[in-house]
Write a protein that binds this DNA or RNA. Structure first.
Lengths: 110, 110
DNA sequence: CTGCATCCCGCTGGATACTG
DNA sequence: CAGTATCCAGCGGGATGCAG
């Protein structure tokens, strides 16, 4: 995060800096909609995202306290992701952003 | 824009693809708050943004139909930017994103 | 299944100087 | 004042292969 006090005039810059990454909003939205989702399901839904990218952005979101990671020691391994309470506070934004996209997605494919 | 039908499952991905660029959300927010704003004012408010970056992202926003550019042939030159009607539809999102940032901006400066 | 390690490319965007 | 022109570095992130 490259945020510092110089950007104090722009709280929105803080937000976009915090959630920066090509797929982060999409990831958050998937978690929001699914409540709980396994790594592989997430990967399939977001294809063609690369493994490296997905796990990296998940890790960042986790260390930012927006996403919770629950690991079950089974064979084969199972890991489930979900939004933290903090992450839930993004719900209204996720909803609006998705709606905004939906409304233009058709009229705008060039 | 690298968006295509493969991402149909993620309207939100359309949105973030459309408004991609380090400063675009901040620019849009400034326009939203100011209604109308001159280039130089915008530049000052967003410093340390570079000229190249600001004018480039403004141009993209303009060609995406979100921002309106009004040029007055005076000396010295005056150019004013504002949101188009289309751009106005982002208002609720801009408002929420700014609020979200404001609420954590203090508790999170590391 | 769920990642991490490597390698590497492309593009965003920063610094700076110049122009109508 | 409002940009454009260059030049360039960093890094985000894709492809692929390996590991627990």
């Amino acid at each position: 995060m490259d945020f510092n006090s110089k950007y104090g005039k722009c709280p929105i810059y803080y937000t976009i800096s915090k959630i920066q990454g090509k797929w982060k909003w999409a990831i958050l939205y998937k978690l929001y909609k699914s409540k709980v989702i396994r790594y592989n399901k997430l990967w399939n839904d977001l294809k063609p995202i690369a493994h490296r990218t997905l796990s990296k952005q998940l890790k960042e979101l986790e260390s930012d306290g927006l996403v919770h990671r629950e690991q079950y020691n089974e064979v084969p391994p199972r890991v489930e992701y979900s939004l933290t309470n903090d992450g839930q506070t993004l719900s209204p934004i996720l909803e609006l952003m998705s709606d905004w996209g939906s409304e233009r997605i058709n009229s705008d494919i060039k």
